[in-house]
Design a binder for these strands. Structure first.
Length: 431
RNA sequence: GGAGAGGUGGCCGAGUGGUCGAAGGCGCAGCACUGGAAAUGCUGUAUAGGGGCAACUCUAUCGAGGGUUCGAAUCCCUCCCUCUCCGCCA
């Protein structure tokens, strides 16, 4: 959420920054509401001060011997009642304005950071670096490299047809070595992050409306999440949601910062409006597994933290020997809560394309303001900065491993770092 | 699901209509004392919003929301949460 004071003082700055996202908004109305609300508050609190004074005086007179039902007390009562009515009227107006203001502010995305490059769409994103050598087909025997879903089905790692029976399309059932590899990847990543100093978290994956609002999924993107209608609970679309709310409404002691967490959770997304896209395989599912990293930092540390967070995600890809590149998102392609984002794209050898596997963002104080997460800075409290990054999306990691490690004898070789977790150096489809 | 108890400041805990943002204690910070520390003493120590360059000041907040009253932590209503016991259950 954007700062109300900034809205009152410099709406032009907000307008300019939002237009970098391709969002043209007229903020004059909103600014007026904000100022009007502040004026009302001033009037109201002055009246309340007067009312408090009268209340005190009644008490004093009665204690000094005045009769509670005498004329002088009755006069004060009369005044008190008048003020009470006026206050009630002002309060009502104020509440109405406040709620309008809040609702509209909750709909506005974060301001892009000064470092974020300008641009209108995905096409304007910037390749920051590439790592590793993308494997190009075909196999030595001349047969083309396969896509991960072909390999997965051939080796019996997944069962798509039966998944529809159990749930719907866009769900997957992992079997045998497929299930085992998924589990190995989760453990591998969590252990890695643990060693790097992230505290492991296993949060609830049903989250309430306040949590989704705090991290920015609500109110604007309600159609993206699955909802349990009878319970004010939603299936979390990412561990970012419970991790943000882990410290919602808290004041964190400054010496505890930065706080770093890593959580594995299943993630649930309705993927509304993506009909026909990525219909095969593990790329786009209603339910997928992900290990998420999350930082709470002092504002002055968040930029360095963003680099470190991204490096930590890259470290997972490097340990798995998967070629990737780092993309910096342009202002027009930023997610709702992000001020600045690096996407990591892994090379899918069979598809012959880079595919997003991690998104590492700093949200500056945007989520912290929604979630009221502060830290103590001397005498004052200030908003923290929050950062999140996938480390990594498990299904997409498996896809990349299958495509990257496929051999012409039909099996899939795994990187050495994964062998202790998986218990074998290759997938053969036996078991 | 049934029965009971309870939600007060960073923590413990007092407070059943009047000047209470709230006694007392703990903790924390500063100062004094000390060679240094402990102990002791003194002082200070909530959050949010508004006004002011500032000192400071106004308003709100005792789980949340509503009500009664000139005045509510205290009385009334609704809701939420926590704990204990019973039942059920991975």
């Amino acid at each position: 959420m954007l700062d109300q004071r900034l809205l009152r003082d410099d709406p032009e700055l907000i307008r300019r920054q939002l237009s970098r996202r391709g969002l043209e908004v007229d903020l004059t109305g909103l600014q007026q509401i904000a100022c009007q609300e502040r004026d009302l508050e001033e009037q109201r609190s002055a009246l309340q001060a007067e009312g408090n004074r009268i209340g005190r005086e009644v008490g004093q007179r009665i204690q000094a011997g005045a009769r509670p039902d005498g004329p002088e007390v009755a006069e004060l009562r009369e005044q008190g009642n008048r003020i009470k009515q006026q206050v009630a009227g002002l309060e009502e107006e104020e509440k109405a304005l406040e709620s309008r203001l809040r609702h509209q502010l909750l709909e506005l995305p974060n301001l892009p950071s000064a470092q974020t490059p300008d641009g209108r769409s995905e096409a304007d994103n910037v390749v920051v670096k590439t790592w590793g050598t993308p494997r190009q087909g075909p196999h030595p025997d001349g047969s083309p490299l396969q896509e991960h879903w072909q390999i997965a089905e051939r080796l019996g790692l997944v069962d798509t047809e039966r998944s529809v029976r159990i749930a719907q399309s866009r769900f997957v059932t992992l079997l045998g070595q497929g299930a085992r590899l998924e589990r190995a990847l989760i453990n591998f990543m969590l252990d890695r992050h643990n060693t790097a100093g992230y505290r492991e978290v296993m949060p609830p994956i049903l989250v309430n409306t306040a949590s989704l609002t705090a991290s920015g999924q609500l109110p604007k993107f309600a159609e993206e999440s699955f909802r349990c209608a009878e319970d004010d609970l939603w299936l979390t679309p990412t561990a970012e949601v419970p991790l943000t709310s882990l410290h919602r409404d808290e004041v964190i002691p400054a010496e505890q910062l930065p706080l770093r967490y890593a959580a594995y959770t299943p993630c649930f997304r309705r993927e509304a409006g993506s009909y026909g896209r990525d219909t095969r395989g593990l790329i786009r599912l209603h339910q997928f597994n992900k290990v998420e990293m999350y930082w709470f930092t002092r504002p002055e540390d968040s930029q360095a933290a963003h680099e470190q967070l991204t490096r930590d995600a890259e470290g997972v890809l490097e340990a798995l020997e998967l070629p990737y590149r780092r993309i910096e998102l342009c202002s027009g392609d930023l997610g709702f809560s992000a001020a600045r984002t690096y996407d990591l794209e892994v090379w899918l050898a069979g598809a012959g394309a880079y595919r997003e596997i991690s998104s590492c963002s700093t949200c500056a104080d945007f989520q912290a303001r929604r979630a009221a997460i502060r830290f103590r800075d001397g005498k004052k409290t200030r908003l923290v900065h929050t950062l999140n990054g996938s480390g990594l999306a498990i299904g997409r990691t498996m896809a990349a491993l299958l495509e990257h490690g496929q051999q012409d004898d039909g099996c899939v070789r795994l990187p050495p770092s994964l062998i202790p977790y998986f218990g074998a150096d290759r997938l053969t489809g036996a078991a």
